[in-house]
């Protein structure tokens, strides 16, 4: 489904990713853990296609195609979704308008009929209640004045509506208390599907108690230095990153 080969990437003239190899099969959930500055978020942005994140070497193949050839929106339309670590506030655009525009952009791409306002309300209502998202939240401008938990729930709602094939969750646990974390994790788990792969990026093992991965990779210094099953996360929690990287964990 996703094949990353020898990926090198540069941000602001600084080499951040220094040769990443990663294969993710259909329906698999992979976790990437690593200390601050190891390149976790850079990998997320490179996958989504953010400008300024320059791939200098290597390749990413997604469903048999070269992902790096696709524009940001083309990746989204082909089913790549990034849940942002810091969801962006968009003043003046209401949640409903934003979600409907996004859903319709994808439906149009797939040759499906676009949803009108009434149809969209029906479509969103069910997923909305599962994630404990109030109508009021959707009436407000996107993410403006939202708490950390509201922003992350809003990301997962977008994921639920856009039904991606490959989702990257970038530090979805950061800034969440335990209740919010459970809500978000339940939302993610409800979306686990044999045809949907996920890459869960986190600094802490805690999230992986709730979203249990099939594989865990440790990223340090721009490379994957160790891979294993879900027990690797527990090992890291006990030993710290320092034991693996030979340096003091950040």
């Amino acid at each position: 489904m996703l094949e990353i080969r020898n990926l090198h990437a540069r941000v602001d003239d600084r080499d951040v990713l220094k040769g990443i190899d990663l294969s993710i099969g259909p329906g698999e959930v992979h976790a990437i853990m690593g200390p601050n500055g190891s390149g976790k978020s850079t990998l997320a942005y490179v996958l989504a296609g953010r400008e300024g994140y320059e791939v200098t070497e290597g390749s990413i193949r997604y469903q048999g195609n070269d992902l790096l050839d696709l524009a940001i929106e083309e990746r989204a339309r082909e089913g790549v979704f990034l849940a942002f670590q810091y969801p962006v506030e968009i003043p003046g655009v209401t949640g409903t308008t934003f979600l409907r525009t996004a859903v319709n952009a994808l439906r149009k791409h797939r040759g499906e009929k676009e949803l009108d306002a009434m149809q969209f309300v029906k479509y969103v209502r069910k997923k909305q209640s599962e994630l404990n998202i109030s109508d009021d939240m959707l009436r407000r401008p996107v993410n403006v004045g939202f708490s950390g938990g509201e922003k992350k729930r809003n990301e997962i709602l977008q994921m639920a509506l856009l039904e991606p094939t490959f989702a990257v969750l970038d530090e979805t646990d950061s800034g969440l208390d335990i209740d919010a974390l459970k809500t978000v994790a339940d939302g993610v788990n409800a979306l686990r599907d044999p045809t949907r792969s996920m890459l869960v990026i986190t600094h802490y093992q805690r999230l992986l108690d709730y979203i249990v991965p099939d594989y865990v990779h440790v990223l340090a210094g721009g490379r994957i230095i160790k891979s294993g099953g879900k027990e690797l996360a527990l090992e890291l929690e006990k030993e710290g990153y320092g034991a693996l990287t030979g340096a003091v964990a950040a």
Binding site: A48, R50, I72, E73, V88, H109
Partner: peptide, 15 residues
């Protein structure tokens, strides 16, 4: 960043 966010949800650059 707002443009990136919108495009990452499938909107083309003009939209």
């Amino acid at each position: 960043m707002e443009l990136f966010y919108l495009r990452s949800r499938g909107l083309d650059a003009d939209s």
